[in-house]
């Protein structure tokens, strides 16, 4: 505005008009203060929510925990509505950890394969579309996966489970006499499909950051495409992939509805993951909520608190790994 010399009259008029338009600046200081505190307040609210989640879950869990007649951490029984109430999270913890770990182990290689496929194998022009197709998997809601799981996947799992049982039955995990369809293994397959997109899109992001010069360095040495991937892409992206699959693990642990629909509840820990039965923290909460007494609700909240803490730890670890990689690059 200082460039206006004021020689021409209409220029002066324009300057004056702008000054008028700028008049509200007199309230700038107050406005700034209000706006800045609103922004900061929102940020602090986010922190407050996280803290509140922890606090209120603890507060509502304590009465139930005090009435509990069983060991909360080691008992396999979940009977909080009985008098006296007895409940422990051993079976839930086993089911949650086992199904999500398995889902992560199934999903990670496939997700990395997809990320490499889109980044280095598929025609460049298609990469956007292919990425979108994988992202669509993430857009399908959990409840629909549950519905599909029960109608389509579960019937197919019968044969697969029997096959695994016959071939790998000597491993205790795949052992057992009656491989079934509604097993922890089936739940893991559903979970693997659900966490595939997040692992693959995060891995792809990491792979995209591999500098072109590193790729060309290996190609110029006479590396095949796979050797280029092994020499230049995978070492560079390793910790990113580890972080991504851990985020997938956290996602799988908290997944509720699809798991609840696929699993049939059989009490007690069963190491044979091909046999029917199993429960996770999340599935147990939705299945038990309707019939829960007040203590029952408290017990469910207590188990939810444990789930919250576990996923928090897994997520923080994953973020730390991803962040450390950033410092490297």
């Amino acid at each position: 505005m200082t460039s206006e010399t004021g020689v021409e009259t209409h220029a002066e008029a324009r300057t004056a008009a702008r000054r008028r338009a700028m008049r509200p600046t007199s309230t700038g200081r107050v406005g700034d203060r209000i706006f800045a505190s609103a922004a900061r307040g929102s940020g602090i609210l986010v922190l407050a929510i996280i803290v509140a989640i922890g606090v209120f879950l603890i507060v509502k869990a304590i009465p139930a925990l005090q009435k509990n007649q069983a060991n909360f951490l080691t008992s396999e029984v979940w009977d909080p509505n009985a008098v006296p109430p007895k409940f422990g999270i051993a079976q839930l913890a086993f089911g949650t950890v086992m199904s999500s770990l398995l889902a992560m182990l199934i999903a990670t290689p496939v997700a990395v394969g997809i990320a490499l496929f889109i980044g280095f194998y598929a025609p460049k022009r298609l990469s956007g579309v292919l990425g979108y197709v994988v992202d669509l998997l993430a857009a399908v809601p959990s409840i629909v996966y549950g519905l599909w799981g029960v109608a389509v996947l579960v019937p197919h799992m019968d044969g697969i489970s029997r096959f695994l049982n016959t071939v790998l039955g000597w491993i205790p995990l795949f052992g057992g006499d009656s491989p079934g369809k509604s097993s922890i293994f089936t739940a893991s397959v559903v979970l693997a499909i659900m966490i595939l997109p997040i692992i693959s899109s995060l891995s792809r992001e990491v792979f995209l950051q591999v500098p072109r010069s590193h790729l060309e360095a290996s190609l110029a040495l006479g590396a095949t495409r796979w050797e280029m991937v092994r020499m230049s892409v995978l070492p560079y992206g390793r910790s990113g992939v580890v972080g991504a699959s851990m985020l997938g693990l956290g996602r799988a642990m908290g997944e509720t509805i699809a798991v609840a629909m696929v699993l049939t509840l059989v009490p007690g820990i069963n190491i044979h993951i091909l046999e029917n039965g199993g429960a996770t923290f999340a599935s147990n909460i939705v299945n038990g909520f309707n019939e829960a007494s007040e203590t029952g609700r408290g017990a469910l909240i207590a188990s939810g608190l444990v789930l919250f803490v576990i996923t928090l730890v897994v997520n923080m670890a994953a973020r730390a790994i991803v962040a450390r990689r950033k410092e490297f690059a």
Partner: peptide, 15 residues
């Protein structure tokens, strides 16, 4: 590429 080697503009050792 094994027969004809190449050195690039920016040094690019495998990190």
């Amino acid at each position: 590429r094994r027969t004809v080697g190449m050195v690039f503009q920016r040094p690019n050792p495998f990190p």
